[in-house]
Amino acid sequence: MSKPIVATTSLAGCFGCHMSILDVDERILDLFDLVEFNKSPIDDIKEFTKMCDIGIIEGGCCNSENVHVLKDFRKNCKILISLGECAIMGGLPAMRNNIPIEECLREAYLDGPSTKGHNPDGIMPNDEELPILLNKVYPCHEVVKIDYYLPGCPPRADLIWNALVALVTGDEMKLPYEVVKFD
């Protein structure tokens, strides 16, 4: 039987969840025995080259590119996992959700302490090449269907490891209290 194929990406996240994947330490070698990686920062494959079994998403959606990538993952992965607080709830980036986007942009480019008086033309980034910000930060499941959620900020390496092993082997997932308690 061929190995299950895994893809990962980081959207509006800090890459901390990916660092936590690496935190499985020497088990990363076992992981490569168990699964094959496709599109992922881990092997630096930029585009999907085949249909994948598991897609792991870090971060929520804060701009149009995040949405395109997420939809691409949904199309190319049989199972999608929201990994960590930002993917599940929006996380820190979602703190802007109570502030109108125009106010955010003004604060960043016109009225902020480092920009006030230095941007006389009042220019805000508007190149066609740039992704467009969304009106708010969306958790992944508000954009596409998400099959599983692994909580944490970041989720513990053991939680990620247990989840992947369970998915690949079909065994029940081990969820000891230590890997899901946060206080």
């Binding site: 986007i101 125009e102 805000m124 954009v143």
Partner: peptide, 14 residues
């Protein structure tokens, strides 16, 4: 989720 309506506000702003 509708991408078009999600970006309209910031597209206008910039």
């Amino acid at each position: 989720f509708d991408l078009n309506s999600a970006i309209i506000e910031s597209a206008r702003a910039v």
